[in-house]
Design a protein around this nucleic acid. Structure first.
Lengths: 248, 248
DNA sequence: CGCGACTTTGACAGATGTCAAGGCTTGTGG
DNA sequence: CCACAAGCCTTGACATCTGTCAAAGTCGCG
């Protein structure tokens, strides 16, 4: 069951290398990490609420999300994870998952035992730092989303989401210069933006009528990037975060 | 200028020890961290937006916040930091501050050079882990706030904020069983909750008329904790996060 | 074929934002 | 000490945004 798959781990390594500097030996150690694959259908939770886990989940394909819930069952998606993201790398240091992880599209993932990640941190301090840094970048992204929900209206929030995903997908080679595949339902978008499905529908219509974007047949078509970025007040800085070499 | 102050560092150590296990030697090393004190008046930014910093700020007294801004100047406070919090511990691995830090009340802080924190991480892997963990707990708190802003109404959000602060303050000995000092303006509360000052005022009135709490003369008086917790759907689990000993 | 979930739309309700005004506190300078 | 300005608190009236409810159409799927 447990095997190695350097090609899949390469996705994760690429992400780390975008913000951290790692030696050849460290990189090789990451590629050699053991794990096992798993497929999860859209809509299925693969880490439960409050569950104690002993492995972290690398997203290999598809789209996953972490979400919170209120007592009335309303959901709020807090983070979106695309291929290359280790969705709960932080579970290495906080193994009790505070919020569930769910497959939003059909997802392929590779589960990496904490023990292996932990061993890597012990052997290579620079790897430990890159993991820490990875969590901090997640924190910045959630913080950015929080500003959006607190201080922007529905249309700007939606524009912001699309801009962010467009860039993130582009970086991993999903999508083209015009748009990207986005196999989600409007109720799911509502849960990302803190809106109701009905209002998402209305807002999508407005953006379509304004010639900004079209969401159709599970694909986002961007008609006017500049207009979209302006509406979203989009500043990609928080996503790119080029490598920080201060201490390696 | 640079000196040591184990009593102030003890505040930070206490916080780490709530979630991480550290040896005597590691604890002593934290208490011995060098730094220098600084006073900041309410309303003043002590870390600017996009500024590259070379030290982390331990809050010694008062209340500080990290906030984002939209192009129109609207603010959203993303995190609140109380005494004992190292407000930007994450700057050790991501020194370019994505969002400014501001004193919300008058604040006393101690600035700890990155080099010292960094050296500690190198010598003591367990300390590095506890720093990583500390950032992840911040992430959980911001995620929780995100759920609140996305899926709850003004009254519940406000109740949630008060519940959270009541417990956090109680843990560090600020406040008593009835309430706590809270020297903030209604516009500042609005920025914490993603509301307008006018609506904060209305919501405070409703909670007062419902006999839940009173905010007067810079003090929160809790009249009905159970009612407040029910309105907030308050689950303190995400705050307490008792020590995770899995790997030390 | 029929069910179920999603999409789309309209009408309406409720929550929150905006604007405006008066009273209050606080700090500053004369 | 007083006058004044600035910012806060409080309230009301109104506008706007978003949620709620309902219905019909669409689509995929067993």
């Amino acid at each position: 069951m447990v095997d190695r798959n350097p090609e899949q781990m390469q996705l994760f390594l690429d992400k780390l290398l975008r913000h951290s500097l790692l030696s050849d030996e460290e990189q090789q150690a990451i590629l050699d990490l053991p794990g096992f694959e798993q497929k999860v259908s859209a809509g299925v939770d693969f880490v439960g609420m409050g569950e104690r886990v002993d492995h972290a989940c690398l997203i290999v394909a598809g789209l996953a999300g972490r979400f919170g819930q209120t007592d009335t069952g309303d959901r709020q998606i807090v983070e979106l994870h695309i291929p290359g993201d280790m969705a709960d790398l932080h579970s290495v240091v906080v193994p009790d998952s505070a919020m569930p992880l769910q497959a939003i599209e059909d997802v392929a993932l590779r589960k990496i035992p904490h023990s292996a990640l932990y061993g890597l941190c012990d052997r290579f301090p620079a790897v430990a730092r890159s993991f820490w840094r990875d969590g901090i970048i997640d924190l910045h992204m959630v913080a950015q989303t929080l500003v959006s929900l607190g201080r922007r209206r529905a249309d700007a929030r939606l524009a912001c989401l699309i801009c962010e995903l467009f860039l993130r997908f582009a970086r991993i080679g999903r999508g083209d210069e015009r748009g990207f595949e986005f196999k989600v339902t409007q109720p799911q978008i509502a849960d990302m933006l803190g809106l109701t499905p009905v209002h998402v529908n209305r807002t999508l219509r407005v953006l379509r009528e304004d010639g900004l974007l079209i969401l159709k047949d599970s694909r986002v078509e961007i008609l006017d990037w500049d207009g979209l970025a302006e509406l979203a007040e989009f500043d990609p800085a928080y996503l790119q975060l080029d490598r920080v070499d201060l201490h390696g």
